[in-house]
Design a protein around this nucleic acid. Structure first.
Length: 564
RNA sequence: UGGGGCGUAGCCAAGUGGUAAGGCAACGGGUUUUGGUCCCGUGAUCCCAGGUUCGAAUCCUGGCGCCCCAGCCA
């Protein structure tokens, strides 16, 4: 388990209480859990709850957590996903060591157990088609009826199942079913299908098999093989538990795992359906699974989210109850900002440059101004930022006719240039089309560093860049992928996609210090937000992603006055 | 009108018969060389109706509402 995550015994929820009781009362000695992803897509923001739960419990109880791929459906699964899932779990901060497993490792054992069930008269080969099986299953309110093939002899079942395995039949021709109860009120118990014929190449077993077990026949048995004590899954499997138990009880498995269910975690402004995410990628609405707008872990990583923010969020949310819930995405963002505020070095960057010339500042002079790297962390020290007569400031920091609540730069007004001087705007230069192209200012030489000897305190402090020293960069601003908190509520997810989820600004400038920043390292652009270099960066062209903006009271005020 | 679950503030969530934690959001105010951070303040009688009890969000009964299950997906 990762060393940087301290065990917090105080953490408690109904599952930890069950585990604690099992240990206390001697039902289990070594706690074993498992995270069982199907490698059919990228891990998304809904997965860490299960990952942190399973790895966390193993860690807290001195047990172990297995990473086991539930790879029983070769039609949907790919090696690319097997790789990305491992990378994402490690990024999140969890480690399974040598305990990497695949359900496909157990195909031979599972096959033997299928034979065992047949010999016990508890499974049979059914010749019904998929459609017929559906008809025979009955409905939610009516019982099903027995398949005409339900009472074949054990010998015939054995023969047929072996021939299924040998590849004598085409896909869909026959299935192996458990013989339980077609009248059960629980549809999962109406002779569930255990094996189907699939002439497909498996990412790991290749063409060795043409029959594959279904989830229900693979999962619990894999748990038993690995000695998993607590098999934690989401609520929708609650009514599979009787089947889970039935199989464990009717097979000569080496251990007795127990299944417990917890609620999934959803978020506002977010869609986690793998099918939909796959379409976003394949239809080009985003550039890939790790497009920073995606809700995948790969995307959050690329966007600069610290995994600790995710973990802290999960700690605060807890396991929750057994109801349906969607956390407001703001809650996650708060935890991410909390981590970044403490950790991210401060830097200067200008997104929409406006030229500012200080008329009374010596023509060729350059001063190295001392800037604090992180006011939240004195040990981060300081750095030098070059200051000169010609500067860039943020266009949004100047208004020719400011409303009363605007207290940044305006004609005749004095503001502070952070860590530099107090400057006063004396003139506004415009081009032929009346666009403001330049500001003329004067500075007060007595205010070096930003403090006035006479105690004058401007209402605003601005960030700036020396035009001679500033480094050009592209900055990509990200916003929510959807325009509403409940995307798709009107029936069309695509209609709710936010057309402004990405804004690319090519003409940005950053302080020289930023040129060598490693990919994925998140810094704060003062007064703007958190940003990190994107992998698209090249030595000659810096590209930054906005991880998250800072809370912005001024923007909120403006929005309020626009729609009162 | 089958089965399995769930209903505590806008959102998440503690609470397990003794008189409703906490966080996010929102709204006020203070500090501030980031309109950031930080600090202070403001909100519920627990889906509804009966009942048991000295006492119920917690127990019982009856309603109402919401979620999941009819893949040879997981």
């Amino acid at each position: 388990m990762s060393a940087d995550i301290p065990a917090t015994p105080e953490r408690s929820d109904f599952i930890r209480e069950i585990v604690a009781a099992d240990v206390r009362e001697g039902r289990v000695s070594d706690v074993v859990t498992r995270f069982p992803p199907e490698p059919n897509g990228y891990l998304h923001i809904g997965h860490p709850k299960s990952i942190a739960l399973n790895f966390g419990i193993a860690q807290e109880f001195g047990g172990r957590c297995h990473l086991r791929f539930d790879d029983t459906n070769p039609i949907k699964e790919e090696q690319e996903y097997i790789d990305s899932i491992q990378e994402d779990i490690r990024w999140l901060g969890f480690e399974w060591g040598e305990h990497l497993y695949f359900a496909s490792d157990y195909f031979h054992q599972l096959y033997d157990w299928a034979l065992y069930l047949i010999k016990a008269g508890k499974a049979y080969v059914d010749d019904l088609s998929a459609d017929e099986i559906r008809e025979y299953r009955g409905t939610l309110t009516e019982p099903g009826k027995n398949s005409p093939w339900r009472d074949r002899s054990i010998e015939e079942n054995l023969d047929l199942f072996e021939r299924m395995r040998a590849g004598e039949f085409p896909d869909g021709a026959r299935v192996l079913r458990a013989k339980i109860d077609m009248a059960s009120p629980n549809i999962n118990m109406r002779d569930p299908v255990l094996y189907r014929i699939l002439h497909a190449t498996h990412p790991r077993t290749g063409d060795e098999w043409c029959i594959y077990p279904l989830y229900d026949f693979a999962h619990g048995q894999s748990d038993a093989i690995e000695g998993v004590t607590h098999s934690l899954c989401t609520l929708e499997f609650e009514d599979h538990r009787p089947l889970y138990d039935w199989l464990i009880e009717n097979l000569p498995v080496p251990s007795r795992p127990r299944q417990y269910e917890f609620s999934r975690l959803n978020f506002t402004y977010t869609v986690l359906s793998k099918r939909f995410l796959r379409r976003l990628v394949s239809e080009g609405h985003v550039r890939g699974w790790d497009d920073p707008r995606m809700p995948t872990l790969a995307a959050l990583r690329r966007r600069g989210f610290p995994p600790e923010g995710l973990r802290n969020f999960l700690d605060i949310v807890g396991l929750g109850g057994k109801g349906t819930s969607a956390a407001e995405i703001e809650m996650l963002e708060h935890e991410v900002r909390d981590v970044l505020n403490r950790r991210a070095p401060r830097r200067f960057a200008v997104l929409r440059p406006l030229k500012l010339v200080i008329d009374n500042y010596p023509e060729a002079q350059v001063e190295e101004m001392e800037a604090v790297n992180n006011p939240e962390d004195p040990s981060a020290g300081t750095r030098k930022v070059p200051f000169a007569r010609e500067l860039w400031i943020e266009r949004d920091d100047f208004m020719e006719n400011p409303p009363s609540k605007f207290f940044r730069l305006a004609p005749g007004r004095e503001v502070r240039l952070r860590y530099a001087y107090l400057v006063t705007c004396t003139d506004v230069v415009k081009d032929a089309s009346d666009e403001i192209v330049e500001l003329r200012c004067t500075y007060d030489p007595e205010t070096h560093g930003g403090d006035a000897p006479d105690g004058r305190r401007p209402k605003a402090t601005l960030h700036w860049l020396s035009s001679e020293h500033a480094v050009p960069a592209e900055v990509r601003l990200y916003d929510r992928l959807f325009t509403r908190p409940d995307p798709g509520a009107d029936g069309d997810l695509f209609a709710d996609l936010n057309p402004d989820s990405e804004t690319v600004r090519e003409e940005c400038l950053v302080e020289p210090e930023l040129a060598g920043l490693p990919i994925g390292e998140t810094v704060q652009f003062e007064r703007l937000g958190y940003f990190c270099p994107d992998p698209d960066s090249t030595p000659g062209r810096l590209v930054f992603n906005r991880t998250l903006g800072l809370r912005d009271t001024w923007a909120r005020l403006q929005a309020q006055s626009r729609r009162p």
